[in-house]
Amino acid sequence: MGCTAERVAEALRAVARVVAEHREELVRLDREIGDGDHGENLNRGFTALVSKLDGDVPGTPGAVLKSAATTLISVVGGAAGPLYGTAFLRAATSVGDAAELDAGAVAGALRAALEGVVARGKAAVGDKTMVDALTPAVAAASSVAATGGDVAGVLAAAAEAAEQGAESTVPLVARKGRASYLGERSAGHLDPGARSTALLLRTLAGSAR
């Protein structure tokens, strides 16, 4: 079964709820190795996105993703604004104007999102950023899609891999973003952006079931 514009919008509303629930946690993580605004930034962005979707849901999944990108870019701020904004923008481009997304399209959109984040932030795996969560998620999603999995299966695998990838940032020394100014002192903490990426994918997986 494919994923329509309405379902993408529903999934993004669910993400907004989860981000609001985890706002404090993300703020706390970012306070440890950053400036403490990550939860606030994302919550502001997704709240704005929900108001926009309440007004009007665009006609295709790609248009919904594009609309999300525009809102996140202009409202989130910080590093997460341009990074998530670029991710959604690339995902939107990748799915084109298809009316429904199948497993392959979803996996392709995740890959495009990762490529966007890397193009924008120039981070590699191991730099202690959201790339550490997104990279294994894309690999897992692609392999499930390639072996005939459905959208729910693709997203479940992506979420699982993203959670592990986020955990893997704990011992790392940050080499990108604000946390990199801390050097060795950034080790021993979970990267807030990796955590939010895992939360986002887990929520998308939940809404696809």
Binding site: I73, G77, G78, A79, G81, P82, L83, G85, T86, R120, G121, K176, G177, R178
Partner: peptide
């Protein structure tokens, strides 16, 4: 000034 401002500027 800082890295994230670079990303915003580039966009």
């Amino acid at each position: 000034d800082l890295g994230s401002a670079k990303m915003v500027a580039e966009m």
